[in-house]
Computed example of a mutant assay.
Amino acid sequence: MSFLDITGRKFIVFGLANKKSVACAIARTLVAEGAEVIHVVRSEERRTTATKLFPDCPVFLCDVEEEENIVRVRDEIAGYLKNQGGAKIDGIVHSIAFANYSEGLKPFHSTLKKDFLQAVDISCFSFISIANHFKDLLSQDASMVTISISTTRMAAENYGYMAPIKAALDSSCCFLAKSFSAFSHIRFNAVAPGLLKTSASAGIPGYVDSYLFAEKAILRKAALTTREAADTAVFLLSPRASGINAQTIVVDAGMAINYFDKEIIKGAVG
C-alpha cells in the first residue's frame, strides 16, 4: 500500500482544460497512485482532450454555469457508479474559474455587475452546488478540494475582480465543512498556489510580467510548478490528510515572505 492510501479509490475531477491545467496534473498524480478518476469537463472539445490524455478514464460533460447541468451530470455519474456495483466517490476536485475580460481590464471600482456575478457563479457557487448535489454519492469520509490563490489580500490590478471571488471560495470551504459535519466526516479544503504557468493564466492581462516577478520573489528563484500545487491537492484528497479541514493551504514556495529580497529592492531603487 502506498503512503497516500488512495489505490482503488474513486475521485471526480472537475475542470480539465488541457495538459497544462491544474486539473490535469492532479488527475495524473491520482492515476499514478492507483486511483480511479472520473473527469467532468465543460465542452465536447475538452472531452476530446481529456479522452486523449486519460484514455482509461470516463469523461462527462457539464457547464456548471447552469445548475441543472450539475444535477444532470450527478445523475449520469450515479448511473455509472451503479453499474460498478454502487461504489462511492472518495473525493471531488473543483478546478474551475472564469472571469470575463472581453472588454479589457478595468479599474476594480468599474467592474461590471454582470461580469462579477457570472464569475462568482462559475468560480465559487459551483463548488457549493457540486457539494450539495453530489453529497449522496460521497463516502462518509470523502474529501472535496478546490483551487484558490495564494493571497486574496494582495491587490494585483491585473487580476481584476477575481481575488474577492476567491476569498468567497476560501470562506465557502469553512461553511461547507461546518454544514456537512452535521451528517458526515467529509472535509473541505482549498489549495492556494502562487503564480502558475497555465493556459488559463495566460488570458490574464499582464500575467507574464507578474509571473516573472514572482519567480524573483520566490526564495529558491524558481517558479512554482503546476505539479507542486497538484500534489498538495492529492494529499488533501487522501486519508493521510484526515486531520485537515476547512483550511486554505498556501503553496507558493515561500514567495509571500520575500518581497523585501535585496535583489528585488536593488532593481526597484537602483
Rank of each mutant, 00 (worst) to 15 (best):
M1G: 14
S2K: 13
S2R: 12
L4Q: 08
I6V: 07
T7V: 15
F14L: 13
S21W: 05
V22K: 01
H39C: 02
S43E: 04
E44H: 10
T49D: 12
A50L: 01
T51C: 07
K52A: 10
L53G: 04
F54W: 03
C57F: 04
F60Y: 13
C62I: 14
D63V: 15
D63L: 14
V64H: 11
I70S: 05
V71F: 01
V73N: 04
R74I: 11
L81C: 06
L81K: 00
K82R: 12
N83P: 00
G86D: 00
A87C: 08
V93M: 12
F98P: 10
A99H: 09
L112M: 09
K114N: 14
K114E: 15
Q118I: 02
D121E: 12
D121T: 03
D121Y: 01
I122S: 08
S123L: 07
S123H: 08
C124R: 05
C124A: 06
F127S: 15
A131S: 15
N132Q: 13
L138T: 12
D141W: 02
A142C: 11
S143L: 10
T146P: 04
I147T: 10
S150D: 05
S150K: 14
N158Q: 08
G160Q: 04
A168Q: 00
L169G: 04
S172R: 08
S172A: 15
A177Q: 13
K178Y: 02
F180T: 07
G194P: 03
A200E: 07
A200P: 09
P205N: 10
G206R: 00
Y211T: 02
Y211V: 03
F213A: 12
A217C: 15
R220V: 08
R220D: 08
A223E: 08
L224A: 11
A229L: 06
D231S: 09
F235D: 02
S238H: 02
I244N: 12
Q247E: 01
D252M: 12
G254E: 00
M255C: 04
I257P: 07
Y259L: 03
E263D: 08
I264M: 04
I265S: 09
A268Q: 07
